[in-house]
Write a protein that binds this DNA or RNA. Structure first.
Lengths: 337, 337
DNA sequence: CCTTGGCACTCAGATCAGGCGAGTGCCAAC
DNA sequence: GTTGGCACTCGCCTGATCTGAGTGCCAAGG
């Protein structure tokens, strides 16, 4: 038996099943794909594939459907990323180029990804941890209340309100501002934190100390690391079938941003698009969903992750191509900013 | 026939149907509620209620369920807002008091509302349109690139990047900054826009002009008016029943923030909690969902709207109480800020 | 005039049997 | 190694039957 024909059969099964959502039988297979052999031959191949665990029968008198292992093989060895059509490329470019700020880039990316793949899209906001401090700004709201604004290289802006014991005039405020910026500007936030701490005189309990505390707190505040945008939940409606086994757990996971981050996080391996299929990894509740994700960020740094979540029965080549294309384009935009 | 008993029957039907999700028959009714009359009597009442359009039969040999009109009467005349338990009050207080900034307040409110009501919660970010300018800040990133930061009274921060033809030193920057703040600070954004325009010398094409253009653009940018937080979508899983008629259109609406805003917007009538039931209003696709919403904001201004969306068959008294409680508490927090 | 027990009637949903047909596994022939 | 033939399996569709909750109506009682 030709080993590559066996693979061709697997590929055909995956493609048909993804397209039709129905178990695929030997006869339909040879008709739809020009395999050049008889159904009987295909049946033999399928028997072997089943024995090896790549496909399975939902019930005795039905066709075959791919197992997780089958999808895995398909993704790893049989997938040539479907190149995006030029229309799609143009759509990505025009939609993302219209963005006015970081928030908008993320929002648009989510929307775009969900439309391209017709799946649920997830985009993590660029993390603080590797970004640098661009500027610290102080704004007096009243003489004793200060708004501390932190501007990061990624374009993210954090703000905190500080109540002071003392009051400050404009000159003192200006002096404080410049001391803060000298200490922190241009540094990665980890280093900025220590530099700021060092800039506070030993035993100081005045405004400077209070502000630095607030800033350091803002640095280490992982809320921003956990920020995530989700879009295309309406696409869940399309897998009306297994509501309880697939849709419900997924909806729950989408609310749990921590879980989502973990799911996406598995992807963080270089520039490649990562695929998690079915029960791979933890989260058994999500056994019937797959994740296609990749890192993105300016330069070669993967500051954050974006991807899609959908049923294991999904169009992997198309999804992977879309995820890669969007990630590349977003990265390019972040480069310019 | 006693008219108030008829109403009692309607109330009982609504309560039972909401609780059990099943059409309620005359016998079950008298058993569960101490109506003090026989099933036959109730049947007569029900026949009248049906004739008047408050209840209906899904099919001949079934019990009754409330119509939209029935729910409407129930909400308008038969509902005493369920007071929140003291535990619930405390939960609201502790969760919302922990918020660090406006974004966080909104996020927490959504989460809270969805948990209290077990429905999908929607919270609109406070709108720009009525808020005032607290401060304008300029930050030079390079001598010719400026980050313009707009801080509003609601705590919202908008930022824009401006490319200048000229370069500016620190002194010039400071002077510009103070001119901008003199013109805009403390004003409602509409007035701030005209004041800023007036502050630009006739025919000026320099930095001041470019910055003012950017600011005015940020004012009129309605993106921020349309910002919305959605939470608790997982609760949709609970109405597994009518997936296509109820869940799908709702999921789609949740993505369309414009639609959501319109839905919530109908609520803007003073401090009261507004209820839209089923096919009331436009959006026929949402015929089987109801909206419970109310305005909120500092003082008596309703800057924005928050509420929940769920099946017409929902616990109105509970939902209304929760919406009102959260809105009040959020308003109080905005008062302090 | 309202209420109540009685009673015949209706009809959705559950249960079951029979038949259909897609798909399989196996085998003998090429 | 491939192919046609063939008996077999079994999920699902269809139609028939049964059950029971719930109704509408009526005649009797307060």
């Amino acid at each position: 038996m030709h080993d590559d024909r066996k693979l061709a059969v697997l590929r055909a099964i995956v493609e048909d099943y993804v397209a039709t959502e129905e178990p695929v039988g030997s006869k339909a297979l040879v008709e739809r794909h020009g395999l050049g052999v008889s159904p009987a031959t295909v049946r033999n191949d399928m028997a072997v594939l089943e024995e090896e665990g790549f496909i399975t029968q939902p019930h005795t008198s039905a066709g075959r459907i791919p197992t997780d292992k089958g999808y895995r093989l398909f993704v790893d060895r049989l997938t040539n990323l479907k190149p995006m059509s030029s229309a799609e490329r143009r759509a990505i470019a025009t939609i993302l180029d219209g963005a006015v700020d970081l928030d908008d880039v993320v929002q648009r990316s989510v929307r775009l990804l969900s439309q391209l793949t017709r799946q649920v899209a997830v985009v993590q906001y660029p993390t603080l941890s590797r970004s640098t401090v661009r500027h610290v700004e102080l704004v007096a709201i009243t003489p004793s209340r200060l708004l501390v604004i932190l501007i990061l290289s990624t374009g993210r802006v954090e703000q905190r309100l500080v109540e002071l014991d003392a009051t400050l005039d404009d000159a003192e405020l200006g002096e404080l501002r410049s001391r803060l910026n000298v200490a922190a500007a241009g540094k990665v936030i980890g280093e900025a934190a220590t530099a700021l701490r060092d800039a506070v005189p030993e035993g100081d309990a005045g405004p400077m100390s209070a502000i630095v505390d607030t800033l350091v707190d803002a640095f280490s505040d992982h809320r921003s690391d956990e920020r995530i945008a989700v879009g295309g939940a309406a696409n869940l409606a399309r897998f009306g079938e297994s509501f309880d086994t697939a849709v419900r757990p997924l909806l729950e996971a989408l609310e749990e941003h921590v879980v989502l981050l973990k799911l996406l996080g598995e992807a963080h391996t270089g520039g490649a698009v990562t695929v998690r299929i079915g029960a791979e990894g933890p989260y058994q509740e999500l056994a019937s969903t797959s994740v296609v994700a990749t890192g993105y960020g300016p330069g070669d740094d993967a500051l954050a992750t974006l991807g899609i979540v959908g049923p294991t029965r999904m169009d992997y080549p198309g999804s992977m191509a879309a995820v890669r294309a969007v990630a590349r384009y977003v990265s390019r935009i972040l480069d310019q900013a």
